[in-house]
Design a protein around this nucleic acid. Structure first.
Lengths: 189, 189
DNA sequence: CGCATCTTGGAACGATCGGTCAAAGAAGTG
DNA sequence: CACTTCTTTGACCGATCGTTCCAAGATGCG
């Protein structure tokens, strides 16, 4: 049962990402990862390296998949922190369509578990948040905000996104999430 | 080295709470709990029961300690979601004074790791969040908001608190936290 | 076909997990 | 002092952790 790879690396990485997303790094055991990906232990290790490396590749894939949604959501004429609701509800709809997609946000969950990550994981999470913050700041600058406004709006967008992620983890309804996001949209500049 | 209890139960519970707070439930190993509390395994188990029971007692203690800060922060004439900054910065100041106090918020961290908790832990976290939500709603009703406003402001306060907790986990500065909280305070009713 | 190359599944490793238990010793009571 | 009661310490349990490794088998090439 071997010879050439019998699975799609990208698809396996996506499934591994879901496992980390759902369970968090500490509870994403190798057994859960092998079960979630359908790969054997040997394939998993030879393809992605150890658990920490797989986690970092999952974070990378996550950013590549979901960060563009921010640009999209904030590219309108009057971007505001509540615009993340667009991106967020898109993910929510994805989740309803595909029950494999967990609640919340992998990056936010990883940030919450920060002390439980190893040094490399912590460094990557910090970098990703800094990158996202810079990306959001650029979006608000592009929309005409001055430096201070852009910095503040970027921070509030980040904060709104994180709270939506945490709220959804404990089963708050889409209506509640939308309420929070639209309230954030009313923050006056 | 025995006879009568040689430690203060309340103090031990407080230290155990810090361990869960810092590491999260899955990474709060019994070894870390014994080290953090200074108790032996036998004392820990005979006093508090198993790990899950100790976690729930830690959550209870957390609520008893920190939920009154919300009442305090929102008891003024014009409460708003940003008023949580008062409570939050108080905790931050506590943390600076006592380095044992971890970053973030135990309840928010537990919510983020929701799927990693057992059934009893999940039920307790949900109950605590519902209780907090009701508590906040009451505070806004008492301040003269109508039902819909009170519900919305309570939700936003909860959301702001959660984002402050997550942001602080990755080392965001007190200034950044204050920016988020004061922005939330400007949400118009 | 013969051979080298690679993948696969699963056995096995030491470490650590949560949890239990018994021996040892301190305190209270008479 | 004798005796009971309770706490503490640390060894120990089976299960699971992350990781390594190898035999078995499938593929591609000459």
């Amino acid at each position: 049962m071997a010879g050439r790879k019998q699975f799609d690396v990208d698809e396996a990485l996506q499934r591994a990402m879901y496992v980390f997303w759902r369970w968090g790094y500490p509870e994403a055991s190798i057994d859960r990862l092998t079960e979630g990906t359908g790969l054997g232990r040997g394939s998993l290790y030879s393809t992605f390296g150890d658990k920490s490396a797989l986690f970092r590749q999952s974070l990378d894939r996550y950013a590549q998949t979901y960060h563009p949604l921010y640009d999209q959501a904030l590219s309108g004429p009057h971007p505001n922190p509540g615009a993340v609701v667009t991106a967020y509800l898109q993910v929510t709809l994805n989740r309803i369509a595909d029950p494999n997609v967990p609640d919340g946000c992998l990056l936010t969950m990883s940030a919450a578990q920060f002390p439980a990550l190893d040094a490399e994981g912590q460094a990557l999470v910090r970098t990703m948040i800094d990158t996202l913050r810079a990306l959001l700041t650029q979006a608000f600058l592009a929309a005409g905000a001055d430096d201070q406004e852009a910095a503040e709006l970027a921070l509030c967008t980040l904060a709104t996104n994180q709270s939506l992620a945490v709220l959804s983890r404990t089963g708050f309804s889409s209506d509640d999430l939308a309420t929070v996001a639209t309230a954030a949209a009313r923050i006056p500049r």
